[in-house]
Each structure stands twice: as C-alpha cells, then as structure tokens.
Nucleic acid binder design. Structure first.
Length: 293
DNA sequence: GGAATCATGTGAT
DNA sequence: ATCACATGATTCC
C-alpha cells in the first residue's frame, strides 16, 4: 500500500457511518462512570483492547476533540457556560396548533407542522408511518416519517433495535407501520450530515403530540447549535414559568431526538439530568456539538 | 456538597 | 382521583 492509502476516509466532517460510535460510547461511559479514579487514556485503551494511539485517533475523528478536551467539554463547568450565554429569542412568531409555518429555528433549517387536536386524539389512527434503521454518528438510528415529513427519530444500541421500535410504536398505537428503509434513508443524509444543513430546501418535520408538548418542542427548536438552556428557561419561554417540571416531562416525550434538540436542555445547575435514549448518548451529542461548533 | 422535602403542571390509567 | 416524572428552591446536615 502506498502512503495515500491512509487518507482514504475523507477528513472533512464526521463520517455519518456509525462505526466509531461504539468505541466512543464505551470511552464516555468509562470516563463518566469512574470519574472518581480518572482512568488514563492508556487504561481505557487497555480495557477496550486497543492501542492508545489508535483510540486517540478514532475518538478525535469522531468528536473533533481529543478525549481529554472532550471530557472537559462535558463537565459542569462547561455546561454552565453554554447556559448563561444566550437567552431564547423570546416569542418569535408563534405558530397556531394545526397550522404549519416555516421558520429559521435551528442551524438545520426546519419547518414544523403540528397535528390538529383531532388527529392527536386518534392516537395516530389513519396515519401511515414508514420506518427504517440506519447507522448514525450516535448509534443505530430509527427513522420514522409520514408523507408529510419526519415524525420520529430514535436511537438504539446494538441489539436493542426492537426495543426502540416498540417504544416508538407505543406512542401512536393506531397508526399503520410499514418498514421502508429506502424512504427513510433520504432523511438520514439530511439530518446527520452537516453539509446538508443550511441548504435550499428545509427539512419537513411533523410534531405529533399534545398542545403543551408541541409548544415545548417548538421552543427547543430555537436553541442554537452548541448552546443549551435549562428546563425552567423553556418554561418561561412558553409562558408558564412554574411548569418547569412539566416541561421536563414533555421534553422527555420528544419523538424526534436530535432534530428537536432535547439534548440541549439541562438542569439549572448545568447537570445532565436525563435522556430517554441514555445519558451517555446525551453526553456524546453535547460533546460532539462542542467539537463541531 | 449532598440528602430530604415540598410545590408544581402534565399526561396516562 | 391518583400517580410518576429528564425540575427547582429550601432547609437541613
């Protein structure tokens, strides 16, 4: 092999193929679980059966940060910095439930559309939802879409795909589900490849939830890339300052992870309080954003 | 710094 | 009605 062979993978941007994530996931897990004894890079590499340099390389390619810098990026200290910086762009054009409207709400250009109350009550009845699994930078992604747009995005660790699918199907039990990898594949490229983010055609997203939930999710969409807010910030933003706990519940019910950036909601102390698809993944996404901001 | 405790709004049963 | 929460503030160690 010649010297060029080692740059066979394009250095531009993160590869959307999910191959690095399993490694990264375990590193993050070890670092945060045993943060008391601060395992060295060597110790981690040994545990994973890899050489330190190899590990370093994989991690940096994935995160845009060295493991050390990454670790720093997910500490309380840094999280607090993400918080204080920017207020939500208070109450920009509000959207009526059931009405659709475009808006520049995310670095990923998104138009969202909410279900009408009637459609919500039907629990997905009369709706056809197509779904498929695809590798993503954060593990296997389950993508769901109606003919109106993206309606669900979930993550699964290896072997947990069925559980993720069950979880998602429970939300709209009366919908008809059709496996359709081909159809969902187009969304994966749009969502996980940043090169496609700020381009011509906005990503269409369908918010299926109660009135309150949809308001919370719309609020989340306003948080810029690499920034974060607290649950009470969101509560304020939707005009119910005492409802921060309810906001937490609604954030937790977010069906379109990553696109609706529920990972950018933190506790007031800056602590990562919870994530439906695992705290490790929340750290991973936040850290990845820190490295790619 | 925690741990315990309270007020709290929403959504599911 | 009642219960479980991805909260937050307060009040103790």
């Amino acid at each position: 092999m010649n010297a060029l062979a080692q740059i066979d993978s394009p250095p531009i941007d993160v590869t959307p193929d999910g191959s690095d994530y399993e490694t990264v996931r375990r590193v993050i897990e070890m670092i945060t679980l045993d943060y008391r004894d601060q395992p060295s890079l060597e110790a981690i590499a040994f545990e994973l059966g890899q050489s330190p340099t190899q590990l370093q390389k994989v991690f940096t390619r994935w995160a845009g940060l060295s493991p050390k810098a990454f670790l720093q990026a997910v500490t309380l200290d840094h999280a607090k910095r993400l918080l204080g910086k920017e207020e939500l762009p208070l109450l920009e054009a509000s959207y009526e439930l059931g009405l659709s409207g475009p808006g520049r709400l995310h670095d990923l250009f998104v138009t969202h559309e909410a279900m009408s109350p009637g459609e919500w009550k039907a629990r997905g009845g009369g709706l056809t939802i197509r779904y498929g699994f695809h590798p993503s930078p954060f593990g296997e992604a389950l993508v769901m879409a109606t003919d109106r747009g993206l309606s669900g995005l979930a993550f699964a660790d290896l072997g947990q795909e069925q559980a993720a699918l069950d979880d998602m199907m429970r939300r709209w039990p009366n919908a008809e589900y059709v496996a359709d990898q081909e159809m969902t594949a187009s969304y994966v490229g749009r969502v996980f490849d940043r090169a496609n983010w700020s381009c011509d055609r906005p990503l269409k997203v369908v918010l299926i939830g109660t009135d309150f939930q949809v308001r919370v999710w719309q609020s989340l969409l306003k948080i810029p890339f690499g920034k974060a807010v607290t649950y009470s910030d969101v509560a304020n933003d939707i005009g119910q300052p005492t409802a921060s706990r309810a906001v937490g519940a609604a954030v937790g019910a977010n069906p379109i992870s990553f696109v609706v950036p529920c990972h950018r909601a933190l506790g007031k102390s800056g602590a990562l309080t919870g994530y439906h698809w695992g705290l490790t993944r929340k750290r991973a996404i936040l850290g990845w954003e820190a490295g790619n901001a």
